[in-house]
Design a protein around this nucleic acid. Structure first.
Lengths: 140, 140
DNA sequence: CTCCGTGCAAAGCATTTGCATCCAT
DNA sequence: ATGGATGCAAATGCTTTGCACGGAG
């Protein structure tokens, strides 16, 4: 599954040239539960030898998102990116810690069709975001 | 119900001074299905006699949202505002036309608790946004 | 050799802030 | 009279663009 691919393979599979910078950006994002903004990525990469130009970070994130390797989120008015594997694209977003959890698709599928029948509205099955408080942050 | 209040009363009820500008902003938003950005509000108000300063629009929207009279949305990286009555705060957002429809709460309530049991995640029952395609925009 | 990616600097926008003025209570 | 609201202008911060350089196919 794509989640276990090394960044390099994911890039090739997406039809992108695997450059040092794209590798660095992708590698930084893989395995994170919280989305990162371009600024954050740039900051973390700065400590790396050489670092990656801010412009390049913006372009890489945009490109990778277009290629379907990243999901974009709105973090307090700024665009943030999170790596997505082959995993379901249903997210539970914690308003406390910003973590994004994957939601088992079967839990939502039936409800979505039910909703469709009730309202005539067709939800995007491939991208559902639900905000709330995750178990770890839940008030004790 | 607050939806039928004239803007003036809504402002007073929220503990805000009903100024000409706030009235204008609120009146513009009442009854709209699509959220508007500060820029859009300012533009539409510009044609009005006198118009409203851009800064004031930003401040009014922020204040009104804080007071609970408006809901905020993320429209393509920009903050957008929509009037909310006493209506349920569950929205179905059309990705095609940006319209925001209200969703009957009973359709989601039971599912939310079910989700909670399955995942330990506590969704915000008071604010749920679901993106998709509305009936009007549905591919024929 | 030819492209595409990179990086710097500059430009572009949305949003916020400082400060003097004005209005309504 | 007094505190909040307004508006202009300037500042801030994120993001994009122009353009020349460099490296990979």
């Amino acid at each position: 599954m794509s989640t276990r691919m090394v960044p390099d393979e994911q890039l090739r599979a997406a039809g992108l040239l695997p450059t040092t910078q794209r590798r660095a950006v992708l590698a930084l994002l893989v395995g994170r539960s919280r989305p990162l903004t371009a600024q954050a990525v740039h900051a973390e990469l700065a400590s790396t030898v050489g670092g990656v130009g801010l412009t390049t970070v913006y372009r890489a994130l945009h490109t990778l998102a277009d290629a379907g390797l990243l999901h974009t989120f709105d973090l307090d008015g700024q665009r943030a990116y999170r790596h997505c594997g082959a995993a379901p694209h249903q997210h539970l977003i914690c308003d406390r810690c910003d973590a994004v959890l994957e939601c088992p698709p079967d839990v939502v599928a039936s409800w979505l069709s039910e909703l469709h029948h009730h309202t005539g509205f067709t939800p995007h099955a491939d991208r559902l975001d639900l905000r709330g408080i995750c178990a770890a942050c839940a008030p004790t």
